[in-house]
Every structure is written in structure tokens, then in C-alpha cells.
């Protein structure tokens, strides 16, 4: 009588654990979808590890990622994933990442990124991260985003990105990890778009 009971209990525990793991990975996948652009099956994937308070990340976002999205992501050649890698030296970077992810839940991730980088010089000084992100949202959206910004799930998704960064040996921001045919090419700094374009074309012509 005791044996079948303990077996059932063990089975129940395993099922619960499996369920939790699945739920966790599903959450990770959802966060990734929110923070990614392009076709998943694109030949090249680029993961961008960045920090909203880092000036080089702003330069990369405005000078390189914008044209990259137009020329390569929109045409199905590149799958672009944003990864949060807030550095501890930047006081408001983690909060900014939380707000951007929260905005992502209502499909406003890009808008949040754009305004955070555009106004980087302002909120980095006054610390009004929430106000900056909410300036591009409707009042009802802003209310939700302010609530979600402190959600433990959002923090967990950022921690997940940081862990991925550590695994990919990211030690500075911005760092792009370009993947093509299982080959990974890490590139740090505010990369010149023309050089990046040449590199991507070289990969695609292989």
C-alpha cells in the first residue's frame, strides 16, 4: 500500500517539476518573441546584449541597428534579438530594462527602446525612467506598464538574459553575437554599419 503511494507521489513530483521547467522556458520564449524582430528562420541571427544607460549602446541602436532592421531584418535575412545586459555601474539601467520589457507586453518594446535611447542623457541624470517610457504610451497603457515594471517575472527574464550573456562570454556592452550556420561571431562596441553590412553580405554569399 505504501509503495504504490510513494510511487504516485514521486510521479506527481516529477510531473510538477517538468511542468515548472516547461513554464519557465515558455516564459523565456515569450520574452524573446517580445524582444525580437524578423523571421525566426532567417539565415543569420544576431543577439544584441545592451544596456539602456550605455552611450555606445545608444550609438549602436541609432546608427547601426536601425538601418540593419530596414535592410536585413525586414527582408528576412537576419533575425534580431535584443538581450538586456544592464551593467551594475549604471544606476538606472536595470530599471530601464524592466520598463522596456513591461512595455513589450503590450507590444510597445520598440517604442520604449527608442525613447529610452533618445532621452538617455535626461533620465540617466534625473532617474525618471518610468516617466520617459510612459511618455510614448497612452494613460491606460502607462498604468499597466508601471505595474508590470516591478513584476518578478520581468526581473527573471532580465536575469535570464544576463545569464545568457555570461554564457556567451559577454563582458561589455554593446556586444552582438552573430550566428550563422552554428558559428558564433562576437562583436563588441558601436559597430560601423557599413562594415557590419559587408560582413553580413560575406556570410550570406558563402
Amino acid at each position: 500500500m505504501g509503495k504504490p503511494m510513494s510511487r504516485s507521489l514521486l510521479f506527481l513530483c516529477c510531473a510538477l517539476a517538468a511542468g515548472m521547467v516547461e513554464l519557465q522556458s515558455a516564459k523565456g520564449a515569450i520574452t524573446e518573441i517580445v524582444k525580437s524582430t524578423g523571421t525566426f528562420t532567417a539565415p543569420i541571427s544576431i543577439e544584441v546584449f545592451s544596456d539602456f544607460q550605455c552611450p555606445s549602446c545608444k550609438a549602436l541602436y541609432e546608427g547601426t541597428l536601425r538601418p540593419l532592421e530596414d535592410d536585413y531584418v525586414a527582408t528576412g535575412k537576419v533575425y534580431l534579438v535584443h538581450r538586456d545586459f544592464p551593467l551594475t555601474m549604471h544606476a538606472h539601467a536595470h530599471e530601464a530594462a524592466c520598463y522596456a520589457c513591461a512595455a513589450g507586453r503590450i507590444g510597445k518594446y520598440e517604442a520604449a527602446c527608442s525613447v529610452l535611447f533618445k532621452q538617455q542623457g535626461v533620465w540617466s541624470v534625473d532617474g525618471k525612467v518610468g516617466d520617459t517610457v510612459c511618455s510614448v504610451l497612452s494613460p491606460s497603457e502607462a498604468k499597466l506598464v508601471r505595474q508590470w515594471a516591478t513584476d518578478p517575472q520581468i526581473t527573471a527574464s532580465i536575469e535570464h538574459d544576463i545569464q545568457l550573456g555570461h554564457t556567451a562570454k559577454v563582458h561589455q556592452t554593446p556586444t552582438m553575437v552573430i550566428t550563422y550556420k552554428d558559428q558564433h561571431y562576437p562583436v563588441s562596441g558601436a559597430v560601423n554599419y557599413d562594415l557590419l553590412r559587408r560582413f553580413l553580405d560575406q556570410l550570406l554569399s558563402k
Binding site: 561571431y185 562583436v187 563588441s188 562596441g189 558601436a190 559597430v191 560601423n192 562594415l195 559587408r198 560582413f199
Partner: peptide
Amino acid sequence: QPWLLFAMAIDA
């Protein structure tokens, strides 16, 4: 490694 990666590093 591809020379363009090194070019990006120099450009930085």
C-alpha cells in the same frame, strides 16, 4: 577569423 571582424574592432 573573418578579417571584417578585425576591421570592426579597429574601427571601434
